[in-house]
Structure formats: C-alpha cells, structure tokens
Write a protein that binds this DNA or RNA. Structure first.
Length: 420
RNA sequence: GGGGGAGUGUCCCGAGUGGCAAAGGGGGCGGACUGUAAAUCCGCUGGCUUAGCCUUCGUAGGUUCGAGUCCUACCUCCCCCA
C-alpha cells in the first residue's frame, strides 16, 4: 500500500525506505502533519517482562527516527495496562501480574530508551509517561459514561484479536476484553495531555490503535493516526529473537553485549540488508553496497550489522569489545579472556571437578543429564578437546596459561571457568 | 439444572487398547557439510550419585502383582438441551 505513496516528510520517507511501514490510517494527512514539524507520536510498552526484547526494537527505532525527523517521541510505560494484559495474538489468558512485578519490570524497561532518543523538557525531547497515572484512578461509572458510550462492542467483536479467540472457542475474559478500551483511552488521553496525534506499534496492534483513532474522532478530538510496522521474521520464517536460550533481551543483565553481538553476527544471509535498514543508522547507499556482497564476503556485512546494532544498544565500546572477543575466538581460535567467565571455588579444582557438573556450573547445559547426552553427541569440549568420557575430571592441570579452563558447548557457546 | 465430550512428557500439537519414561510431528539443541549463514543429512530433546534409582499423563482417593489406560469424588474447559 505504501509503494505508491512518496512521503515528503523526512520522518515518513525514512521509515518507508527502511522498511518500517506496514499500515497507516491516513498516509497523506500524517505526512502533512510530520511535514509541519509538530508530530508527536507514541508507542506503548507493557511491563510484562523484566526487559524489552528484540521484538520491541522496531518500534523503538521508529521513535528514534521520529525524533531525528523533528518530531517528539513518547515512550509510554504500560504500568496501568499491564494490570489487565493484552489478549492480542495470544491464545491463552496471561497470568495476572502483581503490582510489585509490574514495578520491577518497568524499572528494567525504562533504561533502554535513553540510548535511542534524547529525553528532556524541550519541544522534540522524548518523554516517558506511565498510563497508570490516569488509568489507576479511573472511576468505573465515569469511564463507562464518558468513554464506554463511544466504544462499539460490535466493532470490537469484529477485530481479529477478538474474533480469533471466539472462533477458536478460547476463553476471553471481560478483563482482557477491556484492554483495547484502555489502550484507546490512552491514545486520547495522550492527545489531551501532550498533543500526541499518532500511535505506532507492531502490526498486531493495528486493531487496538484504530480503536483509539476512532474514539478520538467520536470525542471530537483532532484527527489521530495509526502507523504500524510489519512483524519482523527471519527469511526462514521464524519469529525474530526466539531461541532455546530465551528471548534476545535488550538488558545487558539478561543478555550480555557479547551474546547480543553474536545474535546479529549469526543473521541469515538473506536478512542482512533488511536488518541493516531496520536496526542500524547506516546510510541507505552504504547498506545497498553491503547487501550486494556475496558468498563469504557477506560475513563482513554481518559484522558491521553486529557492531552497529550492539553499539546502538550497549555503546560503541561494548560493541568493539564483543567484536574483538569474537574475532579471537572464531578467527584465531585463541582463548579470549573476555569470554563470559564463571568463578568456581579453588578448593573444587583441587578436589577435581566432574565434567558434567562443570558444564552445569558454567550454565552451558541445564542438567547433568543434558551434559551426558551432549557428550554422547560430541557437543561438549574442554579446552577445545571434545569430551569423550562423562566421568572425566577437571583439575588444576586443566588450567591454561591464563589460569582458566575453557568450556565449549557446540561451536559457538564458550564459557571460561576460573578458580578463585 | 439435564445430557455429552475433553484435560497426556511445564515449548506447542498429538497417538495411547492394564506391562509406559509413554508413538508421531512441529519447534529447539548438538554433530556432519559450510562462511560463526541458509538448505540438506544424522543424533538428542524428564531428573539423579545412570548396568540402577526417582518423578511424570487435570487433582485426590480406590481396584490390581502392576494404572495414562478401570472405578469414585472433585476441579477446569467445550458442546447440546433447559
């Protein structure tokens, strides 16, 4: 739908060229608004996990480009909506979170944003309100009269998120059903408070966002806009960032910069160009050059992707250090001391540490049973030697010059064990 | 309120008739091949002090040498009737 339209505003032009746009409620009018330089737009983030993950990165980048294009980004914390839980795209009701959990999650989530946009009091400075500010003190009857009277149940029942649940005969509680009402109200409230006129999000949010747009119109507010990004999958169709180890978290405490760098380094060939456009700030002509690299040369493009993406999130220094660790580990086969390290009491080394326990201790495998299986499959190595005997003992003699033992799980996951 | 059906390995789907650590997928992980890619092929995919032991089939009891499988009660969900 967007190919035919050529936005005049920097903001939309950039988003379009970089592949951020899936749907827009009114492309021309939004472009007009952005061109006038007064576009204020928001993305909502629920506090359902201790950190945001890579799936949230697309919308964060949208906020970044918004600010760069002269707009004002609002990163809305869903402290209030997290009390309810968004049923979109889910088959089952999510467990209700406690207030304490939500607060803890919120604390983990908010710190990411300052890396992607500038916060402050100025006209295009980003702000970060929390919808608990207005949702928590809502009066039920008042809400029903003021807002509920403008929301159509017929309309909501027709929404995909609801229709799918009903069609599959899966429970949809009244609580969850209200989520979209609250999100619609958020949009209107942000317009009242800050003059926000656009809401952005993933394509799964389209229905919820449109509810807000329509509510705004019925309440006689100014025209509101919906702008969604496509669901990002890998070329092989998998959802981004889903690995057995868990989600690709944006918080360094949950996923080290090194592992984050590795995630990007392992991008599929056919995704490199698309990901460079979405997840880095590199100029487009540079990206087109990089994506024409073929064969093994595309590895260079992947390194640049990893450097840029990691640099954005964790800083250039962390990115460089991750790149260096990877270079030594993979290209030289040398022992890089900056690999993730686990300390083990020296006494255990003196006594001799069983391989099985050692790998569990390093966090590379989940149980001794798994360690055993991996040994049978040839997947574990100590100091680059394949472990053949599950009864093997790691003692002080295994410590190399650097005073550490290198444990490897597969080709790519390495941990250093250090006695202390 | 009456009648019928369903809940299986804590990733998901899903066989399962008294001998079951439980078929088969998907997903994931590992190995081979490569370029730290994809595709392909192979292996693994409850826990432990692993010739063995322990814990799993909605929950709690019961029958039996032995129960995912049979019986009873309960919980949850779905369908039909009211």
């Amino acid at each position: 739908m967007t190919d035919a339209f050529h936005p005049r505003s920097d903001f939309l032009a950039t988003l379009q060229q970089r592949g951020f746009i899936h749907q827009c409620s009114n492309f021309e009018a939004l472009d007009e608004k952005a061109l006038s330089g007064s576009l204020i737009a928001y993305v909502g983030y629920d506090c359902t996990a201790p950190s945001l993950h890579i799936g949230n990165l697309v919308s964060i980048m949208m906020l970044h480009w918004l600010q760069k294009g002269g707009g004002k980004p609002i990163a809305l914390m869903g402290g209030g909506t997290s009390m309810v839980g968004d049923p979109s795209g889910k088959d089952q009701t999510r467990k209700l979170l406690t207030v304490a959990q939500i607060d803890a999650n919120k604390a983990g989530i908010r710190k990411v944003f300052s890396r992607f946009m500038t916060f402050g009091e100025g006209g295009t400075d980003a702000i970060m309100p929390d919808n608990a500010e207005w949702l928590a003190k809502l009066n039920y009857i008042e809400f029903l009269r003021e807002i509920g009277s403008h929301l159509s149940v017929n309309r909501m029942l027709a929404m995909d998120s609801v229709k799918l649940r009903l069609a599959r005969e899966q429970e949809l509680s009244f609580l969850e059903f209200n989520y979209m009402c609250l999100q619609a109200y958020d949009f209107v409230e942000l317009h009242r408070r800050y003059g926000c006129t656009a809401q952005m999000g993933g394509s799964d949010q389209w229905g919820n966002i449109i509810q807000g747009v329509e509510l705004g119109r019925r309440l006689g507010a100014a025209q509101l806009f919906a702008l969604t990004a496509p669901l990002i999958t890998t070329a092989s169709g998998a959802k981004m960032g889903k690995t057995a180890a868990g989600a690709i978290w944006l918080d360094a405490a949950l996923l080290s910069p090194y592992d984050y760098w590795q995630f990007w380094r392992n991008t599929e060939d056919s995704d490199v160009g698309r990901f460079l456009r979405l997840f880095t700030l590199l100029p487009l002509d540079e990206i087109s050059r990089l994506e024409t690299l073929g064969g093994a040369e595309i590895n260079e493009a992947k390194k640049i992707l990893a450097n840029e993406a990691t640099g954005l999130l964790h800083g250039a220094e962390a990115a460089q250090s991750a790149a260096e660790t990877a270079r030594r580990t993979f290209e030289e086969g040398a022992l890089a001391e900056s690999l993730p390290t686990v300390d083990v009491p020296g006494a255990e080394f003196d006594a001799g540490l069983g391989v099985l326990a050692a790998f569990v201790r390093a966090g590379l495998v989940a149980s001794t049973g798994e360690a055993r299986r991996q040994i049978r499959g040839g997947g574990l190595r100590v100091n680059d030697e394949v472990v053949a005997d599950e009864r093997a003992i790691i003692g002080r003699d295994a410590l190399g010059a650097a005073g550490v033992v290198k444990l490897s799980f597969g080709r790519k996951k390495h941990v250093l064990l250090r006695p202390n």
